[in-house]
């Protein structure tokens, strides 16, 4: 395992005119570690993840495997992001979306890995040839997960990956996250599921009103208490 953290965030700030946003967030995610980001609605989870993924401007520093935003291409090549907005064009099928991903993510062979990953999420050949608009919300979610997990990268940044999944798929997600950790990947996930967070995460970050606090490895009660006192 590399001594350098897969993700290093230092005094990251991104605020909106309303005053909301993230203020001076600092934390690290090491290889082989899952860090969960929990917080109430509007606390700044998505804002923080968008900054980490390079989808929004910010103050401070984000380093992925030592690469900062001046080396954007190297950063993006080392992380897989599942942003909050994961709508796909309604008239494209999953297989075409995967072809786009293979081409623009510069990941040769991704399409083949995607097919086997999709099977893991219960998407067969028929579903992959179906236009996105004909898929249920849950199926679209699985499509997004299959795509992002088709990449093999040191860091995964996932915004509410459990959203719209049924209980069986949530269980499968948990196994997948743990599997990636055991393979040595680093994972940062924002979630509203405190139970999931406390089960899989090695460390929990609580975010309230843009302030990030490292709770370490704690139980559900402590997380809820931290969120309650901060909000």
């Amino acid at each position: 395992m590399s001594a350098r953290p897969a993700l290093e965030v230092l005094r990251l700030s991104r605020t909106y005119r309303s005053g909301r946003g993230v203020r001076a967030a600092s934390f690290q995610v090491a290889r082989g570690e899952i860090v969960a980001l929990v917080g109430p609605n509007g606390a700044g989870k998505t804002t923080l993840l968008e900054a980490v993924c390079g989808l929004a401007d910010y103050l401070g520093s984000v380093r992925v495997e030592g690469f900062d935003r001046e080396q954007e291409a190297a950063q993006r090549a080392r992380m897989a992001c599942l942003p909050e907005d994961r709508d796909f064009p309604p008239f494209l099928a999953g297989s075409t979306v995967a072809r786009l991903a293979e081409r623009f993510w510069e990941q040769p062979g991704l399409e083949h890995r995607f097919v086997s990953e999709a099977e893991r999420w219960g998407l067969g050949a028929a579903e992959l040839e179906t236009p996105v608009f004909a898929l249920s919300q849950g199926m679209r979610e699985k499509l997004a997960l299959a795509l992002v997990f088709s990449r093999t990268v040191p860091l995964y940044v996932l915004d509410e990956p459990e959203a719209h999944l049924d209980p069986i798929m949530r269980d499968r997600l948990e196994s997948r996250l743990e599997g990636l950790r055991s393979e040595g990947s680093a994972l940062l996930l924002a979630t509203h599921d405190v139970h999931l967070a406390t089960r899989v995460a090695d460390s929990i970050l609580a975010i309230t009103r843009g302030e990030v606090a490292d709770l370490g490895r704690v139980g559900v009660a402590e997380v809820l208490r931290a969120l309650d006192s901060g909000s």
């Binding site: 390079g54 989808l55 291409a73 090549a77 992380m79 907005d85 064009p89 991903a101 623009f104 795509l147």
Partner: peptide
């Protein structure tokens, strides 16, 4: 533009625009 979920993982936005 690529859908957000694809754009977020594309290392070279300039190449994406051209293609």
């Amino acid at each position: 533009a690529l859908p957000a979920a694809l754009a977020a993982n594309a290392p070279d936005p300039r190449r994406v625009a051209v293609e």
